[in-house]
Design a protein around this nucleic acid. Structure first.
Lengths: 144, 144
DNA sequence: GCTGAACCCTGTAGTTACTACAGAGTCAAG
DNA sequence: CTTGACTCTGTAGTAACTACAGGGTTCAGC
């Protein structure tokens, strides 16, 4: 099957498939006489594994590891399990970070309400001092 | 004040401040005789506005717009309000997407439980066909 | 046999928001 | 006058794609 069909079957773009091949996530497929990529069932399975992993938020590096682990005949489930748990923890972290943002935004837009105040509540929030200044990014220490 | 102090006072890295200046988000500050950047209270306020905006998840382009709107004497609160609501909606979108991931990951790691099965439950999930294949990325249509 | 549309190829450059150097200059203390 | 901490410019790297430019291939229809 040609790359366009593989793209349609996997739900990702043609360029993405070529990108995955370029970075070595997918093996180089067979070629037709005219130089077109020719995907077989196995290539497609591997591609689907990748897109599925992306849908679960895994990075391409993590997916690369998962594929290697999966290829291993004496598969260690524990390692996969550890990766998944670690990844889940990261996602939960991101969720709580986003929720913090959403909560604060919600409060400010509720206070503003689209009205015509002298000074916008939202902008005031941004100009105001932060409650926990200097802790967000852990910048390098200043000696002087 | 020097850039290192500004970094400490704003909670972001020195390189980040220079980056903001380079892309025109912050105005070029005064310079000392030796060529060092010399930040004043106003520069710091603007920098803090930016880091605060980042904490709320706004993109640098959005922050640029917010700064312009804020500089406008006949400030239109409605526009700021619209931006904030739009941004909030995007964040909520991302939260629900992450929650979808977290839910599915949670189910699989719960089913696996770190045991030594013949075939890992997590990997099985990845190898399995997706329930809604081909819809995730809206790839370009295939005519043939 | 020829044309045109639809598909495919390689290679490169752009995106976001930084981060990490290299190689040099400045400044204050000892 | 040296040393160490700080700063400067400029460039290149990161993740995961996306978007071309400039060509080649395939095939249906005439």
């Amino acid at each position: 099957m040609k790359i366009g069909e593989a793209a349609a079957a996997s739900g990702c773009h043609i360029e993405t498939i070529r990108y995955y091949e370029r970075i070595g996530l997918l093996p180089r497929p067979a070629r037709t006489g005219g130089g077109y990529r020719d995907y077989h069932e196995d290539d497609l399975r591997r591609l689907r594994f990748t897109t599925r992993g992306r849908e679960l938020g895994f990075s391409l590096d993590e997916i690369r590891s998962l594929l290697q682990l999966s290829d291993d005949p004496k598969l260690s489930c524990a390692e996969v399990d550890h990766m998944a748990r670690h990844h889940l923890a990261e996602i939960q972290q991101r969720i709580s970070e986003l929720r913090r943002m959403a909560d604060e935004l919600q409060r400010t837009v509720a206070a503003c309400g689209g009205g015509e105040r002298a000074r916008c509540v939202i902008l005031n929030t941004l100009w105001r001092e932060r409650p926990n200044a200097g802790k967000a990014n852990s910048p390098r220490a200043m000696v002087p």
